[in-house]
Each structure stands twice: as structure tokens, then as C-alpha cells.
């Protein structure tokens, strides 16, 4: 039990008008203390839902974790009381959301939104908390922090708001930071600032980061391990260098080859992945990437492929069609 977070066979479902749908369908991975794990995949593949399942922030009443274990420091978060969950959430696990304007309360000053966490989790007095809030704003690189504590979110730029979100998430020095698309709404230059900030805070606090993104550049530059999700399942995961050098699943290979690169020939045709992700109600039991590729061999669509470990820590969903070890040696 060395991992900080271990997820085993997590299944998260939503109750809809047309019955139950499985947004996350049996995923397992772990995060070591101090490491960064990247969760990558297209929109709607279950990245955010799987992360929100960890801290019980699913939309209620429709969302439910149906199966699996979420072991955080050895404790199964599915079995803890609501009170304990409130301690974990914001205290031991911090969260940054994609759109800071939607995540911050527009009618409260940012100082109050930071001190709220400190008072609740650390039992600080108002004065102590305010002093700490100024310190935190300074640490995340906000100029004139003693003035900005009394600013409202709309008075700040997008990058500054994301810094405030980070200050709130880090207020209680969590062991794990869940960063859900922390830079998607930001410009490249501001993205570089924010990623640098997360990295330096991670070093300072020794925390682990679960980085959810669809940007493979961010994964390559900032993560130790990568988990590739497709249609509610993990198709491949492994150490980042190994996975980028040696992708084995057809979907991972497709993703990696379809991004426009700076060194590619201009105006050349890009590799594409044909089709699109099936609707969540139409997911087959078997290999869902085969479903997208219109492979009509019914056996592929009926049985769920097993995982195989092709090198230490590098796991691939071993569908007979999508598992492509030989093609990878070409590149």
C-alpha cells in the first residue's frame, strides 16, 4: 500500500431518462506521493467524472459510484462518513477547476473565499486566516496581495483568477491536487505561468498532482505518468516517456499522430482518427475503439479486452485489433 491514491475497478453511473449510463466503466490506476499523473482523452470520455468520483463531487442526485475502491492513504473514500469526506475535500485533496470564473463565487471577495477554507480546516481565527491568505496570494504570484484580498473575482484577469483558485486549493497544503483542465481556458503564455506555478508549489509541498487535460503537450512536459481514457475506460497507461516513445494502443497512436506539430511539413495532410466517440447510451461491452472504427466482428464488440503489462508499469487494453505493437516500431 505504498501509493497515495489507488483506484480499483471504479464504476460511475448516471441515472438518465433512458436508464443508467456508465460514464466511467471500471478503471484502475494509482498515484504515488509527489508524482504527477496526467489523465488524457477527448471530451466526454469520463476524465472529469472519474476525478470527481474521488472526492464525491458528482452531480446529485443522478451520479453514483456503483463499484470499486478509492483508496486514499489506505482509506476507502467510498466508505467514509460525510464529515470525514469534508475533511479530505479541501484539506487533504485540493481541487482546481477548469473555468475559474464559474468556480469562484462572484459576490464574495477573494480573501473571504480563501479564509473560508482556512477557518474550516485549520481552525484559524479571522485575523490569522487573513494574514495567511495574503501570504498565499503572494506565493502564487499575485502582485500587491494585501490589496487583492479585497478584490472581487470579476476584477481579476483569467490567469489571476486561476492563481486564486490555486491559492484556495493549496491553502491547507494538500497531499493531492486534482487539476481539472487548469489551463484550457488560458492563453499559452499564461498557461506556461500557471504550469510553472503548479510545478514549483508541488516541489515545495511535496504533493501529488492528478492533471486532467486534453493537451498532449502539457502531458509530455509536466507529467510522470499518463493514463489514456477512451469512452469511459482506460485504453493505455504508463510512464510518460515510455508511452510517448512506444504507444501500443491504436487510439493512443492515433491521438499522438493527429496533433499538428511545429516540425511537420506545412499544409500537409494530418493523420486523423476516423469517426467519433459513440453516444454513451450506445457503448458496447467489448472494445469501444473497434466500435468507432466500424469493425463489425461481433466478438470484438461483445467481450471486454483484458489488460496486459508490456513493460514495467505500461499497461495496454489488449484488443486483438487495437493492440498494435509492430506498427509502433516504425516511428
Amino acid at each position: 500500500m505504498s501509493s497515495l491514491l489507488e483506484i480499483n475497478g471504479l464504476v460511475t453511473s448516471f441515472e438518465t431518462d433512458s436508464g443508467w449510463v456508465r460514464a466511467v466503466d471500471g478503471i484502475s490506476y494509482s498515484i504515488e506521493a509527489g508524482k504527477t499523473v496526467g489523465l488524457v482523452g477527448e471530451s466526454g470520455c469520463g476524465k472529469t467524472v472519474s476525478a470527481m468520483s474521488i472526492i464525491d463531487l458528482l452531480p446529485k442526485p443522478s451520479g453514483h459510484v456503483l463499484e470499486g475502491e478509492i483508496l486514499f492513504k489506505g482509506e476507502d473514500l467510498r466508505k467514509v462518513t460525510n464529515e470525514r469526506m469534508r475533511q479530505v475535500r479541501g484539506g487533504e485533496i485540493g481541487t482546481i477547476f477548469q473555468e475559474p470564473m464559474a468556480a469562484l463565487n462572484p459576490v464574495h471577495r477573494i480573501g473571504r473565499q480563501i479564509t473560508e477554507t482556512l477557518k474550516l480546516h485549520e481552525g484559524m481565527s479571522g485575523r490569522q486566516a487573513t494574514a495567511k491568505a495574503v501570504e498565499l496570494l503572494d506565493a502564487v504570484g499575485i502582485p500587491a496581495p494585501e490589496k487583492r484580498v479585497s478584490a472581487y473575482p470579476h476584477e481579476l484577469s483569467g490567469g489571476m483568477r486561476q492563481r486564486v483558485m490555486i491559492a484556495i486549493a493549496l491553502a491547507c497544503e494538500p497531499d493531492l491536487l486534482i487539476a481539472d483542465e487548469p489551463t484550457t481556458a488560458l492563453d499559452v503564455t499564461v498557461q506556461a505561468q500557471i504550469l510553472e506555478l503548479i510545478e514549483s508549489m508541488q516541489e515545495k509541498l511535496g504533493m501529488a498532482v492528478l492533471m486532467i487535460t486534453h493537451d498532449l503537450g502539457v502531458i509530455a512536459q509536466n507529467c510522470d505518468e499518463v493514463v489514456v481514457m477512451y469512452a469511459g475506460r482506460i485504453v493505455e497507461r504508463g510512464p510518460v516517456k515510455e508511452l510517448f516513445a512506444n504507444p501500443h494502443h491504436a487510439y493512443t497512436r492515433g491521438l499522438l499522430s493527429s496533433i499538428p506539430r511545429l516540425d511537420a511539413e506545412r499544409k500537409s495532410e494530418l493523420t486523423t482518427i476516423p469517426g467519433q466517440v459513440a453516444g454513451i447510451q450506445d457503448f458496447v461491452a467489448g472494445c469501444r475503439f473497434c466500435q468507432r472504427m466500424d469493425r463489425d466482428r461481433s466478438v470484438l464488440l461483445r467481450t471486454r479486452p483484458d489488460y496486459c503489462e508490456i513493460s514495467p508499469g505500461h499497461w495496454v487494453e489488449a484488443c486483438p485489433e487495437c493492440f498494435q505493437p509492430e506498427a509502433s516500431s516504425v516511428s
Binding site: 506556461a192 498532449l216 503537450g217 516513445a245
Partner: peptide, 13 residues
């Protein structure tokens, strides 16, 4: 500055 801020999709870069 703009060019250097692009994260390259290559972990060895």
C-alpha cells in the same frame, strides 16, 4: 516568448 511557451508534445524535449 510566444513560441517558447508552446508545450511540445514530446517528453524528451
Amino acid at each position: 516568448a510566444l513560441l517558447s511557451a508552446i508545450p511540445e508534445p514530446d517528453p524528451t524535449a
